[in-house]
Simulated assay, not measured.
Amino acid sequence: MSKDIRPPFTHEAALAKVKFAEDAWNSCDPERVALGYSVDSNWRNRTEFFTGREAIKVFLTRKWERELNYKLMKELWCYTDNRIGVRFEYEYQDAQTGQWMRCHGNEYWEFADDGLMRRREMTGNDFPIEESERKYK
């Protein structure tokens, strides 16, 4: 379990954290994803700022109601003792328009001593793609 991987991180531990996060997010299960974050985790997701595991669940539920057929790839960018930088790319189909989209971005993660993420900052840019251009299926 991701919580068992605690700072200070080694290269292998940082890779394992990233893989765990990728798998959890690809489940599109807000309950499962939220378990990797502290109960008072601080988030910035684009222009939204919120705190707490319950707010994370609300955000993710709303996200995956809009972003259908969601598929994510995360890649370790860098790490230090208790921080990890990630590059990500994901694709989804807009629930209202049916348009396929791809998002590229970066995340900054900071972990508490217990291995739970206490801070997540995300920046990303979406752009339309054709279904034939999808990389992640």
Rank of each mutant, 00 (worst) to 15 (best):
K3S: 08
K3L: 10
K3M: 05
K3W: 01
D4T: 10
D4P: 00
I5G: 05
P7G: 03
P8T: 10
P8C: 08
T10C: 04
T10P: 07
H11G: 11
H11K: 12
A13F: 00
A14L: 03
A14F: 03
L15H: 12
A16G: 04
A16E: 13
K17H: 08
K19A: 12
K19Y: 05
K19S: 12
F20V: 11
E22P: 01
A24K: 14
A24M: 12
A24C: 11
W25T: 11
N26Q: 04
N26F: 01
S27C: 05
S27H: 09
P30K: 10
E31H: 05
V33M: 09
A34N: 07
A34Y: 00
A34C: 09
A34M: 08
L35C: 14
Y37F: 12
Y37C: 06
V39S: 13
V39N: 14
D40F: 04
D40H: 15
D40I: 11
N42K: 14
W43F: 15
R44T: 15
R46F: 06
R46Y: 07
T47G: 11
T47L: 09
E48S: 15
E48A: 13
E48W: 02
F50K: 03
F50Y: 09
F50M: 06
F50H: 02
T51Q: 00
G52K: 01
R53C: 13
E54H: 09
A55V: 05
A55Q: 14
I56Y: 06
K57V: 07
V58W: 00
T61Y: 10
T61E: 15
T61W: 07
T61K: 15
R62A: 14
K63M: 13
K63H: 10
W64V: 06
W64Y: 03
E65P: 00
R66T: 09
R66F: 02
E67N: 08
E67C: 04
E67G: 03
L68E: 11
L68K: 12
Y70K: 06
K71R: 12
L72V: 05
L72F: 03
M73T: 15
K74V: 03
L76Y: 04
C78L: 08
C78I: 12
Y79W: 06
T80I: 07
I84F: 01
I84S: 09
I84K: 07
G85T: 06
V86K: 08
V86G: 05
V86M: 08
E89L: 04
E89Q: 10
Y90W: 03
E91H: 04
E91I: 00
E91A: 00
D94W: 01
A95D: 07
Q96S: 15
G98P: 02
G98I: 05
G98F: 05
G98K: 04
W100S: 01
M101G: 03
C103Q: 11
H104K: 08
G105T: 12
N106R: 03
Y108N: 13
Y108W: 11
W109Y: 12
E110W: 00
E110V: 11
F111I: 04
A112W: 04
A112H: 11
A112F: 08
D113N: 13
M117R: 06
R118T: 10
R118D: 03
R119W: 08
E121F: 06
E121T: 10
E121P: 01
M122D: 14
T123A: 10
G124W: 00
N125W: 03
D126N: 13
F127C: 02
F127E: 08
P128L: 01
I129A: 01
I129P: 01
E130F: 02
E131G: 01
E131A: 08
E131D: 03
S132H: 05
R134H: 01
K137R: 13
